[in-house]
Design a protein around this nucleic acid. Structure first.
Lengths: 141, 141
DNA sequence: AACAGTGCTTCGAGACTCGAAGTAAGTGTG
DNA sequence: CACACTTACTTCGAGTCTCGAAGCACTGTT
């Protein structure tokens, strides 16, 4: 009853993710980051309005206390500042500092270069994007 | 210099993995498992010779002390037993118990059913398998 | 028999995660 | 307006996960 094709896809997806994380952990450590803080940094796009804690927690699939902890790490490192959303003064937003933007760029660059997907050709990447985005859309909550 | 296609593929890979983990954590908890123990269980294929600690650590991208810890959890739950490899008596192997085999089957079934890939058709799955396996092979260490 | 190397475990410290409880700010109802 | 209710976030405490250092057991080599 278990589909071998489904199993191999899920396993490959898992494997690719773990392999990237493995390759990246040392360089991140040298930048003073952990995997958790790096992912949080990645989730804050400087070209978009700064996300609230709630939005950020959703993107990272973690809960509020956990996110508070991770954002504190980033604040302690001078990469992020907390602000208040003027439209809803309950909400705190995460804003990248100058060093934060710089560090985020290095992190994204590292993650992409170390990913096994980095060795794909343009044609493969177009193909993969199309397939994976479709799967994501279909499973949207 | 950052390829938007590469970025979307890496992001999708990350997203699909995290979404599966998120959906699966509650049911696993009800089975008395965590994500770490479930992945370890998945990594022990009962139809193949029982893996040594070293092999298992490689599959899970963790180091030896960490694997010892996780295997202890499985032993405490009666799902795994430690054995000694007769060919090299330094090496310990992880062997599934009867309950372990049963639990592993439930875990794999859960992971596959909850994965966003579960909604793919056979054609998509064939396509994805081919692409992802190629990427994996190319980045083999 | 000594010795260096390998596989694993234990230990201790740090990082991560989460539920429960508390604070501040918005919302709705009378 | 006052009141209860909800929402967004933080703090706290406990449990889980991860890893480097140190130590034990076995192997292969000289």
């Amino acid at each position: 009853m278990t589909d071998p094709l489904l199993e191999s896809v899920v396993r490959a997806n898992h494997e690719l993710f773990m392999r990237t994380g493995d390759r990246v952990s040392r360089p991140l450590e040298e930048m003073g980051l952990t995997l958790a803080t790096a992912q949080a940094l990645w989730a804050i796009d400087p070209d978009r309005p700064p996300p609230s804690m709630k939005v950020l927690a959703g993107r990272l699939y973690c809960n509020a206390p956990n996110l508070s902890f991770v954002v504190n790490q980033l604040v302690d490192r001078g990469l992020v500042e907390r602000g208040t959303d003027p439209a809803d003064r309950r909400a705190r937003v995460a804003v990248l500092t100058g060093r934060g933007r710089e560090m985020r760029e290095r992190v994204v660059d590292l993650l992409l270069r170390q990913s096994p997907f980095a060795e794909c050709g343009a044609e493969e990447l177009r193909h993969l994007t199309e397939l994976l985005e479709r799967v994501l859309d279909r499973s949207a909550d």
